[in-house]
Computed example of a mutant assay.
Amino acid sequence: MHDLALHILLFLFAAAFIAGFIDSIAGGGGMITIPAMLIAGIPPLETLGTNKLQSLFGSGSASLAYARYGHVSLKEQLPMAAMAALGSVFGALLATVVPADALKAVLPFLLIAIAVYFGCKPNIGDVERHHRITKLAFTLTFVPLIGFYDGVFGPGTGSFFMLGFVTLGGFGIIKATAHTKFLNFGSNLGAFFVFLAYGVVFWKVGLTMGAGQFLGAQVGSRFAMAKGAKIIKPLLVVVSIALAVRLLADPAHPLRIWLGM
């Protein structure tokens, strides 16, 4: 795996660029990078570990872009990012010993519910509303819970963070997107260290894809800030549905096995 052909590395770079663009706006970049690495012949566990490395570049790049334009204060959000990282550490440790079949079975329906919520809620835009939970409570409960999920499994983490910031925090959609990226960075970082300890990270692939993620996230975040809710909301709906469909299309999905499909 250390001697992948140049055209395979270029393919992975391009996949990461597209994933970084999409992920910086609506999340769901993993539905592009994980299949791309599997197609390239990288084993599943190494794919998960390497995906966390390259995802750090995308979420970090988007966080810096949103912070630069004043949509998030990274310093103020550090406690939340730390809690996301802590949750993902425990999630990744659990993932090494417990199958994630239950999460795989339920996840597509949760993603479809998120798509329906954002698609049918007409008043979700760039304007902030009254929050339903204190910042401290949000930091100590919702954030580590989603971080834990990211460590165990991962797909749709950005969508879940977005849902929390909008419904519980009362954030406008651009602010929610900006804050989601730094929490994604935290959860990626926590899980990455666990996978690194287990020796399942391919550095050459991760750094190559990380460069693509970084550039894609820079382009995507600027596009999101220019278009606002007009682009973020529909893309979030599309990405959530696409991720749900991709998960259900997997012959190894627990629901398909149970139904004998």
Results as ranks from 00 to 15, higher is better:
H2Q: 15
D3Q: 14
A5M: 12
H7F: 08
I8A: 07
I8N: 05
L10I: 15
L12I: 06
F17E: 03
I22N: 04
I22C: 04
I25V: 15
A26Q: 10
I32N: 11
T33F: 11
P35K: 11
A36S: 15
L38K: 08
G41M: 12
P43W: 07
P43S: 10
L45R: 03
L48H: 01
L48E: 04
G49R: 02
L53G: 11
L56M: 15
S61L: 02
S63G: 09
L64T: 15
A65C: 08
R68I: 13
V72A: 09
L74N: 10
P79A: 05
P79M: 05
A81L: 10
A81K: 03
A85Y: 00
S88K: 00
A92W: 00
A92T: 10
L94T: 09
A100T: 14
D101I: 02
K104Q: 14
K104S: 12
L111I: 09
A113T: 04
A113F: 03
F118R: 07
F118E: 09
P122L: 03
P122A: 11
N123F: 06
V127L: 04
E128V: 01
E128K: 07
I133L: 15
K135M: 05
K135L: 09
K135V: 01
F138Q: 07
L140E: 04
F142C: 11
L145F: 05
Y149T: 07
G151Q: 00
P155G: 08
G156S: 08
T157I: 15
T157K: 08
G158N: 06
G164K: 09
L168A: 11
G172L: 09
I173D: 06
I173S: 08
A178I: 06
T180S: 13
T180P: 07
F185H: 07
S187W: 01
S187R: 00
F195K: 06
F195C: 09
L196M: 14
A197M: 14
Y198V: 06
Y198E: 14
G212D: 10
G212E: 03
Q213T: 14
Q213C: 12
F214C: 12
L215N: 11
Q218E: 11
A226Q: 13
A229E: 06
K230P: 02
P234H: 02
L236M: 12
V237E: 02
V238F: 08
S240L: 03
I241R: 04
L243S: 14
L247Y: 06
A249I: 02
D250G: 10
H253R: 05
L255Y: 01
I257E: 04
G260K: 02
M261S: 01
M261I: 13
